[in-house]
Structure formats: C-alpha cells, structure tokens
C-alpha cells in the first residue's frame, strides 16, 4: 500500500527537459522518510482516473509533442478541474503549464486550446527566453533553468508563483513567474526544479500527505546541504 500516488502525465511525450527529475525527487524524499510512492505513467490515450492520484505532474516537451498532448488534455479537462477543486496537488512545467492556461497562440497565429485551470494566455514569440532563473516565492527562492519562446500573460486576478529576481519568468516585461491556483502550481523552471529546491518539494509532499492522511503527517527534516549548494551555484550562472 503506497503512502502517496504520483501520476506522471505524458512521460514519453513531454520528457526532454529533465523534468522527470521532479518525480525522482518526490519519490526519493518520501523513501528517505520511510514512506513510499507509487508512480503511474499516464501517456497520451491512457485510461486513467485522476481522482486516485495525490500528486499530478506534467513536464515540458517539444512543440510537436505539445500538440498531441493538447488534444489528450482536452479529454481530461473536467477530471483535472475536479481534481484541482478537490485539492489534489499539481506541478506543471513549461509545455504542460502553458496548456493549463486558457490558450496558446502560436507564432504562426494558430490557437491551441488549453484547459483553463489558470486564468492566463500564452503567446508564441520569436525570441527564446533561455537561462538560469531565481524566483522569490512564499516557499523561498526557487532556482531553475528556463527555455521557452511562449510569453505567458496572467489575468490580474491570477496569482503567480513568484517574482523573478533573475531571468525572465512568464514573459519579458512583467517579472512574474508561474501561476498558483489552490494546490495547482505552474512554472517555467526546469533544472530539474525540485531536486535543487527541496523546501518546495517538501511543501508539495506535505500538502499531499495532509490531504490524504490528515494533519499528523509531518515530514522530518533531511540533510539538504548538497541541494542548497547546487542551488547556490545555479543561481550565480548566466
């Protein structure tokens, strides 16, 4: 019997930016505390009941894969909205994050519909935003690497994940990064994100454990010296 179930959306289609490291980090950080996670891969076309998952993860991929994924995600639209309303923890990155907004307008003027969990639109641009990023959030400074040409514009009422201290974030001008709705998080940060940001990884795990097992599920601290060293170096790199 697993303590948590992690659903990995589109692991084969959206898998080229190292985002799989987030799933590795979640699973290991549970194991080091004597807890166990089951990871369910959910590829395009899979029949999968999201209501059984405690954490749902989706990463970045190539443009071509994103189109395929966009269609599949439409099928799951209601199930995702229900899970978000029920407090399921979501972490969506780059390509999947963009599809959790209302729409993606490509550079060629094509509209890829999203599922509207986040009140935001993404517009394809010519210039790629590439480099190491530092984002100030309520869960500490997050360090990652961004690589996207889409500029994401949040509605005024949509909460961002944080403010960029270094790098671009959602777009070139507004200095906000990512989006948060209930327990659903979206961000552009690769890196992988969670291994170098263990506090944020534990925040996600804590939320999922509290929801599943009640308030008693506190996470004992781990030795994160190496994690913090890696993050400090990354934060200084261009």
């Amino acid at each position: 019997m697993s303590d948590l179930v992690i659903a990995h959306l589109y692991p084969y289609e959206m898998n080229i930016y190292g985002d799989t490291g987030n799933v590795i980090a979640l699973r290991r950080r549970l194991e080091w505390r004597g807890l166990e996670a089951r990871v369910d891969p959910v590829p395009v076309g899979a029949d999968y009941d999201l209501s059984g998952a405690d954490i749902v993860f989706g990463g970045g991929g190539q443009d071509r894969s994103q189109l395929e994924v966009a269609d599949d995600l439409q099928r799951r639209r209601d199930a995702v909205h229900e899970a978000v309303a029920a407090g399921t923890v979501f972490l969506t990155i780059c390509g999947t994050y963009q599809l959790f907004g209302r729409r993606f307008l490509t550079q060629e003027g094509r509209e890829i519909p999203g599922i509207g969990v986040f009140a935001m639109d993404t517009i394809g641009g010519r210039r790629r935003m590439i480099g190491n990023v530092v984002v100030v959030t309520p869960w500490g400074d997050l360090v990652g690497f961004e690589n996207h040409s889409g500029r994401t514009l949040l509605d005024p009422g949509q909460a961002p994940l944080g403010r960029v201290k270094k790098g671009y974030g959602n777009n070139e001008t507004r200095r906000d990064e990512g989006a948060v709705t209930a327990n659903c998080f979206g961000t552009y940060l690769h890196g992988s994100l969670l291994p170098k940001n263990p506090g944020f990884a534990d925040e996600l795990l804590g939320r999922a454990l509290r929801r599943r097992h009640g308030a008693a599920a506190d996470l004992p601290p781990l030795d994160d010296t190496l994690e913090h060293r890696a993050a400090r170096v990354a934060a200084r790199r261009p």
């Binding site: 898998n15 080229i16 930016y17 190292g18 985002d19 799989t20 490291g21 590795i24 590439i130 480099g131 190491n132 690497f145 690589n147 690769h190 890196g191 992988s192 291994p195 890696a230 170096v233 990354a234 790199r237 261009p238």
Partner: peptide
C-alpha cells in the same frame, strides 16, 4: 550546453549497486 537539466534524463540509476567509487567535478 548551459542547461544541466539533461543529467536528470539519463539512466543514472543503472549505476546503483555496482560498488564503484564516485567523485564529481566541474562548475556544476
């Protein structure tokens, strides 16, 4: 390559249990 995320896409787990001695170097 400025992005080191790719390290997480490699099958590093396949080295577990081999009894090798590892050191790491470089900027990252």
């Amino acid at each position: 390559g400025r992005d080191v995320s790719w390290l997480w896409d490699a099958r590093v787990e396949d080295l577990a249990g081999g009894g090798h001695r590892f050191g790491t170097g470089g900027i990252r």
